[in-house]
Each structure stands twice: as structure tokens, then as C-alpha cells.
Nucleic acid binder design. Structure first.
Length: 346
DNA sequence: AACCCGGGGCT
DNA sequence: AGCCCAGGGTT
């Protein structure tokens, strides 16, 4: 039996019941694939349900405000996915009369849809022979064929894509694509793969040469930089606080946060006092402050480790646009801020 | 080709 | 705290 036939058989027996497997609706599939980028099924599931409920059609999503989409995305991370999702929904509605693109080539024109996602939608919804190469596929193929080209190199990307193109079942591209990814997700796992009960054991190069733990090969990424964040949690005499929208290019674009003072290292009380006195929002006014967390909260992102301290600043009045503390949960915030809001007794 | 973009889980 | 996981976009 061919590799692809064997995979599809395995899939028919072992596949999980997942909501996006009950539909061929390209809008639903697109939504699920964007949510599942860099995200485990268990983490993405509740977000998929929430998006389907709040935006049943691409027209509903296109009609929403970006702030609403980001609020629903809160906690999932990689927020450019939400911004691109919303922009692409508007594109589909305004430029394509709400008709979803139905080829790999046209799907690629959507913001946030790259090679993997275009292949997934084209094959799942329209039976196009477009092989997917995601993290699972890299792992399965590198092990089964004993390929040690780094998967995150351009050479690796080409090599694995070409191999996937050869292997795909042209009669059933949808099931083949789903099968190889599902196999990587629940059988040929990164850690402790189930080789003992694997139907490919006999012909798997990595298993037979004892290299399961070494494959796939990946080029190490740079170490995360440390940053020191001080958030100013203002509370005025009328029960208002202050949030600012993050603009520009860095992390959390278009999300909200408490006014931020970045420092070179963790600030002690004296150093913070100096910073605060010089701050535009408090200059020349009476205030009282307290340090919310003694030890910095370490929030880890792929490329940054954020050593974070929340400073609660009581002040008579804020000379700028304020937010009643009761409204604070209306704003999309990074989970680091969200966790603080949930634990702080406003 | 190198770097940026979040968050969660496991040890 | 240190490690792993996982697509797309930008420079």
C-alpha cells in the first residue's frame, strides 16, 4: 500500500471530532485555519466557537469594528492574525461580493493567508491538489524519510514542499492533507511519539536508525531579549483610570495598556519616584503610589522576556481622556494586562 | 536569510 | 527558569 493510502486509512480510524471537520464552508475553514496558526487545537477551540457565534458569516465579520475583533481575539496572541482576518473579510465582502476565493492562487491574495493556509482551504473545501506543509508535516516526513535538512531554512521549505507534492493523493487531497497533519499531531508527536503502535514503524528511517529524537532538525532562534515594563495604573478621585492604545510596529499593535514606562532594569521605589515625578501625566500634581507586585511578573514572548511591575497611582484628577474603571473590560488588552485587571480590586 | 510577532505547556 | 511548539509578514 502507498504511503498516502496508509495514512488515509489511519486517519479514518483515528481522527478526532472537531467542529471545523463538519463543514466545507470556506469561511468557517478559513477562520479555523487562521486561529490554528501557531496554536494548539485545545487552545484555539473556544476562540473558534466564539467567532462562529459572534460572526456567523463573512459579512458579519466585515461589518464589525476592528476593536471588536481584537477584543474577541484577546488572549490568543499573534494579534496581526486578527487584524489581517478582519481586513480580509472586508476584502471578500467589498471586492468579491462576499464570494470566498476558491483556488490556491486566489486564496494567497488574502492578508494573513500564506502557502500553508491557502493549501489547506483549497484542498479541504475545493479538493484542489495542494499539499499542506505545516509543523506536523515537517516532523512526519523528516522522520519517515530521515531528512535532516533544517525545516526552517529556505532549502528545507522547498525540499519538503516538493516531497509533499509527490506524496499527495490526487484523488483525495483533502483527506490526505488532514491525515498527515493529524498523524503528526496525535501519533508522530514531538515528544514521546507512539512508535510502538505505529503502522509505519517498519519503513520509518528515523525509527530504524534510532534518530526519532534528532528529527526534525531546526535552526536555533536567537535568545529572547529582556525588557523592563512599568505600568502606571492611575486611579483618580472619580473612579477613573487610564488606558492607551499601542500604536506603531512592535508587539500588541492596536491593543490597550496602562501608560507604560520602560526602564533599563527593575526600578526600586526611589528610582520609580524619580520617573513618576518627571512624567507628563502627574507633573506638578499631588499623588500617592503603591507598588502592586514586589517581584516582577515575567511575561515570556518568543523574542522578549518582559519583567513587569504594576504601580498603582492615586491622583486627584487626570487632565486627559479617562476611562471609568467599570468600563475597563471593554478594551482589548494583552493577557499580561488582562490578568492584572482580573486580580486587582478596582 | 534574518528577524519579528503571543501565549501555553512541560520539566 | 529554561526548554519546546508553531505560519505569515517585513526588512
Amino acid at each position: 500500500m502507498t504511503f498516502s493510502k496508509k495514512l488515509i486509512n489511519w486517519y479514518s480510524v483515528n481522527k478526532r471530532d472537531l467542529p471545523w471537520r463538519e463543514t466545507k464552508n470556506p469561511y468557517h475553514i478559513w477562520l479555523s485555519e487562521i486561529i490554528l496558526q501557531q496554536t494548539q487545537v485545545n487552545q484555539g477551540l473556544p476562540f473558534y466557537d466564539a467567532f462562529i457565534t459572534n460572526f456567523p458569516s463573512v459579512f458579519d465579520l466585515a461589518a464589525a469594528e476592528e476593536s471588536e475583533v481584537l477584543k474577541l481575539w484577546q488572549g490568543l496572541g499573534y494579534y496581526s492574525r486578527a487584524r489581517n482576518l478582519h481586513a480580509s473579510a472586508k476584502y471578500v465582502v467589498n471586492e468579491l461580493d462576499g464570494v470566498f476565493p476558491n483556488t490556491y492562487k486566489d486564496l494567497l491574495k488574502l492578508k494573513g493567508v500564506g502557502d500553508y493556509t491557502a493549501s489547506a482551504i483549497a484542498s479541504f473545501c475545493f479538493n484542489e491538489v495542494a499539499p499542506v506543509v505545516d509543523g506536523n508535516v515537517y516532523r512526519v516526513l523528516s522522520r519517515y524519510y530521515g531528512i535532516d535538512t533544517p525545516i526552517n531554512s529556505s532549502k528545507g521549505a522547498k525540499e519538503f514542499k516538493a516531497l509533499a507534492q509527490e506524496l499527495i493523493d490526487v484523488k483525495n487531497p483533502s483527506d490526505y492533507n488532514q491525515a498527515i497533519m493529524e498523524f503528526g499531531a496525535i501519533q508522530c508527536k514531538p515528544k514521546s511519539p507512539e512508535c510502538v503502535v505505529c503502522p509505519f514503524q517498519e519503513s520509518c528511517v528515523a525509527f530504524n536508525t534510532n534518530r526519532i529524537g534528532e528529527l526534525p532538525v531546526k535552526i536555533k532562534s536567537a535568545k529572547a531579549k529582556k525588557k523592563y515594563f512599568n505600568f502606571l495604573v492611575f486611579i483618580d478621585d472619580n473612579g477613573n483610570t487610564l488606558l492607551e492604545k499601542r500604536e506603531g510596529k512592535g508587539i500588541w499593535q492596536n491593543l490597550y495598556q496602562f501608560p507604560l514606562v520602560e526602564s533599563k532594569s527593575n526600578l526600586d521605589a526611589d528610582a520609580f519616584e524619580t520617573e513618576l515625578q518627571a512624567h507628563d501625566l502627574v507633573k506638578g500634581q499631588a499623588y500617592k503610589w503603591s507598588q502592586y507586585n514586589k517581584e516582577p511578573i515575567v511575561h515570556k514572548l518568543s523574542h522578549q522576556h518582559l519583567y513587569t511591575t504594576f504601580w498603582v497611582v492615586n491622583i486627584k484628577a487626570l487632565k486627559t481622556e479617562v476611562i471609568p474603571v467599570g468600563r475597563i473590560r471593554d478594551y482589548a488588552v494583552p493577557i499580561l494586562i488582562g490578568n492584572f485587571i482580573e486580580s486587582f480590586n478596582f
